[in-house]
């Protein structure tokens, strides 16, 4: 009875349901006849939706990080290390995580609201009775698109934030573009880029699967749609931090730092 009551807790139910949903994703993605046209369409929309916001945020991040780090480094007589420090911070941690959080807000909520609305207006049921597999058409395409596009957006954010860092460096000093790039990339290795890209693949997957799960299982009319969108953002953002924590530990254990 005690165990039964514990399992009945909404949190455990939710974890169980989302695990089943994820397992179904892996079953469906390995079956033949994928909806490639819809996948390309979703890649376009996910990239297009988040591109402007990611670009602006990345630029500001690079600029602000440089401006705020400079006084401390100057105090220790290490101003020359500014490009190296900024580039390592941006590549390893700040750009991937901030990009993922923006995508959790923009893409996760968008998917949650779209699928939630389709669920409560019976559009998903209509797909099913027409013989189309709505899971494959709606969920698999969106999760794959998010998994592909978040690393691309993150890579773009790294490039733009480094440019922001260059401008930030030049506000109080004078460093040529060539020297800045040399110093920034000299401090970086594959051990910085690779984990950064790999973890954004997991971030993208988490954002896609949570958004789709919340939308696909939406209930209770328009109120449910709103709740799906909101909880998709909250859960996806939390998962981004949890995955980041795991990624840091794995990278540390593997000695890639």
């Amino acid at each position: 009875m005690g165990l039964e009551r514990k399992i009945d807790q909404p949190f455990f139910k939710e974890v169980g349901e989302i695990s089943r949903f994820t397992a179904r994703f892996f079953r469906e993605v390995t079956k033949p006849k994928q909806e490639w046209d819809e996948f390309i369409n979703q890649c376009y929309w996910i990239g297009y939706k988040a591109l402007t916001l990611v670009s602006i945020t990345a630029f500001i991040m690079g600029l602000v990080l440089t401006i705020q780090s400079r006084p401390t480094l100057v105090e220790f007589g290490a101003a020359a290390l500014l490009p190296s420090m900024v580039s390592v911070s941006l590549v390893r941690e700040i750009s991937p995580v901030i990009t993922a959080l923006i995508c959790a807000g923009k893409i996760g909520s968008g998917i949650g609201a779209e699928l939630g609305s389709m669920r409560v207006t019976e559009q998903i049921d209509a797909m099913e009775v027409s013989g189309t597999n709505p899971f494959k058409y709606l969920v698999v395409t969106r999760v794959l698109a998010a998994t592909v596009m978040v690393p691309i957006l993150s890579s773009l954010a790294i490039g733009i934030s480094l440019y922001g860092g260059y401008l930030g460096t030049n506000i109080r000093g004078e460093v040529s573009w060539t020297l800045y790039v040399y110093q920034a990339y000299d401090a970086l290795s594959y051990g910085d880029f690779l984990p950064s890209i790999i973890k954004t693949i997991f971030f993208g997957f988490a954002i896609g699967i949570v958004g789709c799960y919340k939308g696909y299982t939406s209930q209770k009319g328009t109120e449910g749609v709103g709740r799906s969108a909101t909880t998709a953002v909250i859960v996806a953002s939390l998962l981004v931090f949890i995955l980041d924590l795991i990624a840091v530990q794995v990278v540390d254990i593997l000695g890639l730092t």
Binding site: Q123, D125, A126, S130, G131, T132
Partner: peptide, 26 residues
């Protein structure tokens, strides 16, 4: 077996043509 939903369940992001073509894809 056709099914006419009470809410109509038209795909609101698609045109009428795309709505009608959708069942054909399968």
């Amino acid at each position: 077996v056709g099914f006419l939903f009470q809410s109509n369940a038209l795909y609101d992001s698609m045109t009428v043509r795309q709505n009608l073509e959708f069942p054909l894809r399968r």
